[in-house]
Design a protein around this nucleic acid. Structure first.
Lengths: 154, 154
DNA sequence: TTCATTGCAAATAATTTGCAATCGG
DNA sequence: CCGATTGCAAATTATTTGCAATGAA
């Protein structure tokens, strides 16, 4: 959770697992490593499609599965019914998501440090507090009003 | 978040909103109020079906939507691709979910109290910390080994 | 060459929606 | 009686899978 994932390392890791290096995989990896934050399968698909229109959705999904199993990327379910992916080394932060305006901001890892310690001591539970999504209301949207319905998530 | 939701109150709330009281809605409400914890649409469907086999899935979904909009139940996305429902007054706790064995335990509200305060002070963010799911490893499963793949969620 | 990998189309799974028939108030 | 509600079937959305063709090593 600190080593930067580079193209070379990624390729090496894949070959070590016996996987082949195909142009599709290369492009997906490049797109992933270049992404600033979370990406969805669809986002990747669209991105790769720009330079390689022939790519198929199943290839994207299968590649993501394989990268995840190789430990190169993290697959996160932040609710909302779609997987979120990003390089494993960039998972040391959390997100504040405003249910009103949808704004997403990033907060550092240590926010949950005390909670983690507490759960560990009191319940023997080792919480995987990497990469959380915290829903609520951002500073701007503190007025109130309805949430357009859908629940809180997480 | 403290007033117990009873059948009478629920019915009153619905009528106040102008909704009709149908046998289907009554049965779904009863099932929900009787449930010890989270329920999924499918769980409810199966439960109601025991006494009323004619019930349809869309009615269940539509009723849940309506109960949610009336503030009687909470609709939560705990990841896993299905909504979780339960009476709004029972949402004052969190869950520890073991990614290894699937065990679910309950922890009190105040676990996240400090985090909430911190987010509020430092980021002006009013986190909706009602009813979280915390993934990780329970005391029993601390060995290690793979997670059967799927991500961490939340 | 040979088996891993791809693309396409079809299959899932959970939820949503259109619509005519029906029932609550 | 009349519009809200139901059930059914079909549509959606995100993801997965079967299978024959293809390409990396």
């Amino acid at each position: 959770m600190a080593e930067a994932v580079t193209m070379e390392k990624a390729v090496g890791a894949l070959q070590k697992h016996g996987y082949r290096i195909t142009p599709q995989r290369t492009m997906i990896l490049e797109s992933l490593l270049g992404a600033s934050d979370h990406v969805t399968a669809e986002g990747l698909y669209e991105d790769v499609r720009k330079s390689y229109p022939h790519i198929s959705f199943s290839t994207v999904y299968r590649t993501l599965e394989l990268l995840r199993d190789s430990g190169l990327i993290t697959q996160t379910d932040l609710g909302g019914g779609r997987w979120q992916y990003h390089p494993a080394d960039k998972a040391d932060h959390h997100h504040l998501i405003c249910q009103r305006c949808g704004a997403v901001s990033t907060v550092p890892q240590e926010i949950f440090h005390d909670v983690h310690t507490h759960l560990q001591k009191k319940y023997g539970f080792d919480a995987l507090m990497t990469h959380y999504a915290v829903y609520g209301r951002c500073a701007k949207c503190r007025g109130d009003g309805d949430d357009s319905g859908t629940g809180e998530s997480e």
